[in-house]
Every structure is written in C-alpha cells, then in structure tokens.
Write a protein that binds this DNA or RNA. Structure first.
Lengths: 343, 343
DNA sequence: TAGGCCCTGGACAACGTTGTCAAGAGAATG
DNA sequence: CATTCTCTTGACAACGTTGTCCAGGGCCTA
C-alpha cells in the first residue's frame, strides 16, 4: 500500500510548483533555477533557456515569503494614517506609494480611525510582517511601544503630528504659522469676533492651530472669548452645532476659522444657509474650493507624503544622522470667502 | 581563536531575538514558546509566565514572514486600482480595508496609473508575495496572465470594469443604465443637443456610458452628431478643449453629460466661465456637489469596495460556485445643474 | 601533455516558524 | 504497588528560498 500523504503542504490549496519542481523538470539543480530567476550571472544561455521553458510550462512564480525569510528584507513599507477615505490622505498615500515604487517596495496601508489602540495594533502587525520601514500619522500620543521595533531596525517617520515620547524623524506642516496667517488675514479684513472650530484637543495639529489663532488675535490686541472656540470630533453634527452656536446670540462672530478640511466642508454648508455673509478661512485645501470661493490655508498632501517617504528611504539606505524634524510651509490662498468684511 | 561569525544573519541589521532566544532565556523548549505566542492550550500558567517575561525582556515579536512560509497563508490581500489620489478610490479602498480587517487581513495597495503594463507588474508582484486574494480595477483588457495564479489558488475579484479574457468574479456599476438615465433626464428637461465627454474608449465604463448616452437619445428619436461626443484622457486640458469645442460653433450643445468625476470637475469650471447657462449631469458624485448644485449619477464607492471584498472573502472561505457578476445600481441625484432648460 | 585557471552547476545549510510525534511526569485506578 | 491515562513539554522535520562552498570540465599556457 502506498504511504498516505499527510504533510501540511499536501492539503494546501493550489500546491504551486517550487524551484525544486522547476529544477527537476529542466534537469538542472535547484540553485541553477534560483540563479535564472534572479538573473544572476554564471548560467549558460542553453541552460537558461531550458529553465525558462520549465518555468513557463509549470506556471512557476517565486515565493517571496520564502525569499524574505532568507534575505531579511521585505521590500515593503507600512503607512498608518487616519482614514484613507479622507481626501487629504489619498494624495498623501499615493505620493508615498510612488516613492516606494521607485525603490522597488510595496506599500501596506492601514487606517487607524483616529483610535490610538487601533494605531498600535496596526503598527505592531506591520512590524510582525517585518516591513522595512514605517510611516505613521499618529493617533495616540505615546509611541514608546515602538521603541523595541525601532531599535531592531524598523525605520520610522512620523507625519503630520509629532511622535509621542519617542525620538524619531518627523515631517510636519506649519500648523501654528498657517493658522496664525489665516486668522491674521481675517483680522486684516476688519474682523474682531472670529470663531475657531477645530479637532479634538489631544490631536497635536488641533492645538497648534488653536495656538496660531490665539497668537494672531493677541497680535491684534483682541481678547478671545470662550464662546468663540470649539474643539471636538469633526463629524458634521458636532461641527454644525458649534458653528450655529457661534452664529447665534446677541454678539455672533463675523468670521470663522475652520481647523481642517472636514470642518471647512460642514462650515460651508452652514454658512450657505445663513442669511448674513460670514467670512471663512479653512485649513487644508479642498477640491472645487476655487469654484466655491473658499479661502484656505493650503498644505500639499502629496509633498508631505513624498517628503516623508524620501526621508524614510534615506534611512533605509543607511543614513544615520540624529532624528530630524522637518516643517513644511503652508500657503494662504485667498478666494473670496476670507475677504468678506464683517457685517 | 574564536571562530569568526559570518553567517548572513550576523550581518543583518538589528538581529532581532527569535523564539529560540526566548526559549533559551526562559529555559524552555522552542515549541513551548510558539505555543505561548499563539495562545495554544497545554502550557502551565507558571511556564507561560516565564515565557512572557522572556518575551518582554528581549523585545521579541513573532516574525510573520516565517509564519507565512510555514502556514501557506499570508492573511493579506492586494488591491490594485487606478489612482489612490482619486476621490473615488479613497473610500473604495477604505471599505475594502474594513472588510479585510474584519477577517484579520492586511491590505496592500497599488496604483496602476491606468497603465496595463504597470497593472500586470503590480498584480504579479502581489502574487509573488502570495497575497491570499486580489481585488483589481483593471487597466488593461487582457488578464490571461492571471490564469496560472488563479488556478494556483489566488482568489480574484475584478471591480468597476470586467476582466479581460478570463472567467472571474466581477463587481460592476450599472454604467449603461446610469448614463442612460442621466441623459434621459436632460432630454426630459427639453434638451435635444447634448454633449458627451468621457474617458478613453479602451476603458469599459467609458464605452458603457457612451452606450447609455446613445440609447437615451435613440429612445428620444434624436440622431447623435459626431461633434457631440468626445472620448479621451480625462486630464483637465483635454476635457476643457472638448467642452469648449462643443460650446462653440453655430449650433452648440445646450447640455453636457460628463463621463466621470474628473470630467465633471473640469466641466464645472468651464461652464462657470460660460455666459450661457448650460445644463450638466455628471457620472460619479463629488464632494460639495450639493453646494454647487451639480446633478449627478451617483455610485457609492464604499459599497462597491465592500461588496467586492465580501465576495473575495467568501471565496477565501471556500465558496466554490461559478464566477458571479454583480451589477450595482446607480442613482440620479438632481441638484439643479441637470434641470436647467435649454437656452 | 601536465598544470593551472576559469566557468558552470549542484549539494547543503540556514532563515524562523509550525505540525507531528514521542517521551516523561504525575494523577488516577485497580 | 503496578498499570493506565492525561497532561505538559521538547526534538525534529518541513515550508521555499538564497549564500557558501566545492567539484568537474574545458581551455589556455608552458
């Protein structure tokens, strides 16, 4: 009786051919197949042809999992961001992908949904896969959990927000300066009562932009009233409520500063329903904002992504300098909504 | 003299601890560590504690590359789309990611940039990584190169456009019906001269939408003139030129049908500069389209992505029925631009 | 023709994990 | 006290590839 096959491989779906199979079919040694597959020198044209024929006949494709195990590098990098569906992150991710591609690496994406626990879970899963490098838009504010991984050689770049309690490369936008310029722009157009609607205070960019807001008003000698400022989740309901509150009452604001693209979108909707003409400046550019005449503080997501990725690959190529902190400038783009005078 | 270390591992960066190291430190066997790491039963609480201590002390993290090699499944899926920066694909990708996450899988993204060769390159790279499944928004029209891979067990779902010369699961939007409804809407508002600006004719959705356009006009007894139709790349310059041509001349069109979101965006810009009021219906919804009053044929990118991913995982869970072809409905959303009467 | 060199090809171990299997300790049973 | 049974544990091979090293054959030179 024939011995029954019961190795795990036998039960695995597909049973793809391996180099061993190709070698047997071509009548050569295993290593020779490896050489052909990797275009290594030292194989006669004739042998090479036989191997290629066997490869085609069997439908062989190299198993990169095994290759990775042997070589120690996965040629892949991980990108953990907040939400790939957010129009800010699509272009950012695409820019990272382009750089990765230029370096022969694939990109694994994950969305943290602004949840620190989920961020950590994702990042550690990527580390277990042994990605060569990581680009993280932090959700949490403590990244010491990454220390062993970084020490073990996983290059890491933090983007958009600084790393928490960990020394690492960072690529940030000038949130403070941008917000300050935007609010100053409103002041320059005569506004004295300016509302600020931003993201949750645990998010670094939110507080930086708020700081910029305060700085601009202080510069102008204006004392901020509590009711002008609202931080919190940026879902439409919350933002709408906040905006409507600022616009109601005996002394409503005459202008709004929106802390990010999601806030801007909702603010535009609210202002469209408002009978007075309220000025608006938003942080982050938005598609079609030109047609809607929305004045924004623009930061180029693609540049942010590309810069981060380039720093990452420089590390992977061996750059050993101390962690750097890059701050990218923002740009005020006047389109009308920010130039409306106070009512 | 001590023997010089020269194994490749010695030169590898980091030299992460392995289960063997943990085992040595905890004074247990290798397999016991494996059991603890994978929460397998049959380990005394005391042993388990010792192992955990060793893991923490060494900063061990399981190497999933090795795990994958042994188990044959990578718990990852690949998504090849056209351009992650396109606002249609962000939400789609995110929806796929959510489903993958629910199944414990990671997502590897790639953009084909609408280049068939790049699509193939990406897809095959993902196959070499042995992703468990693939979701592909095809750029090319011949996918026979995927046959050996699919036969070898890589589940594949094609999205948005049908697979070329290969029998596989597909999730499509009703491009024909959607375009037909959109154009009929314009006809119903009195238009007889309607322009169509769409994507390159080798893209399936482009020709389907054009077919819907023709059907609606034929239904209305209108004979389409050549000058009303323009297919080609959807970059702003080309679209702008096409739109301006249709709006010039002795008998200009009184309405435009835009074949996708990029075309719509440019069309809106062109129409904004035009002195006459031209009607517009666009395929795909756009952020802030409500505020701009743009009538669209809406297809929900997230639903498309989720549906595709669910089908994929059903396959991975063993579903063996013949390939299915799912067609998702579209929805006409009147917002003003489509209801403008002919000048 | 002998000696040396280069070029091609293959045997073998190793990468870090998991599946299989067997051994040993202890508890339970007669 | 002998026997069986259960439970924990570890030795070992295997996953498919690549790096190392050696063998054999052909060619050149002296």
């Amino acid at each position: 009786m024939a011995e029954t096959a019961r190795h795990p491989s036998e039960s695995r779906y597909g049973n793809r051919p391996t180099m061993k199979d190709v070698a047997a079919r071509a009548g050569v040694g295993l290593k020779t197949v490896s050489r052909v597959v990797n275009s290594e020198p030292g194989v006669t044209p004739d042998t090479e042809r036989r191997v290629h024929e066997a490869i085609d006949a069997l439908g062989f494709r190299r198993n990169d999992s095994a290759r990775v195990l042997r070589k120690g590098r996965t040629a892949s990098i991980g990108l953990v961001l907040e939400d790939l569906a957010d129009p800010f992150y699509g272009p950012l991710s695409r820019a990272v992908e382009e750089v990765a591609r230029a370096h022969g690496a694939l990109l694994i994406n994950g969305s943290s949904a602004e949840d620190p626990e989920r961020e950590q879970e994702l990042v550690l899963a990527l580390c277990a896969r042994r990605v060569d490098g990581l680009i993280v838009i932090p959700a949490g504010d403590d990244h010491r959990y990454l220390e062993p991984e970084m020490k073990a050689g996983i290059a890491t770049v933090f983007v958009d927000r600084p790393a928490g309690r960990v020394d690492a490369d960072m690529v940030l936008s000038d949130s403070f300066g941008g917000a300050r310029a935007g609010v100053a722009h409103l002041v320059a157009h005569g506004h004295r009562r300016i509302g600020f609607i931003g993201d949750q205070p645990r998010i670094h960019t939110a507080t930086e932009r708020l700081r910029g807001y305060h700085a601009a008003l202080t510069d102008a000698g204006i004392t901020v009233e509590d009711s002008w400022v609202s931080l919190g989740p940026t879902d439409p309901a919350r933002v709408r409520a906040a905006a409507e509150a600022m616009l109601a009452g005996p002394e409503p604001v005459t202008a709004l500063f929106a802390g990010n693209n999601r806030v801007t979108v909702t603010a535009v909707r609210v202002l469209a329903e408002c009978d007075r003409r309220i000025a608006l400046v938003g942080f982050d550019d938005i598609e079609l904002a030109d047609l809607l005449g929305i004045t924004v503080i623009s930061q180029d997501a693609a540049t942010v992504g590309r810069t981060a990725a380039e720093h990452l690959f420089r590390r992977l190529d061996g750059a050993a300098h101390p962690p750097v902190r890059v701050e990218l400038p923002t740009r005020l783009v006047p389109r009308g909504s920010g130039e409306i005078p106070p009512a």
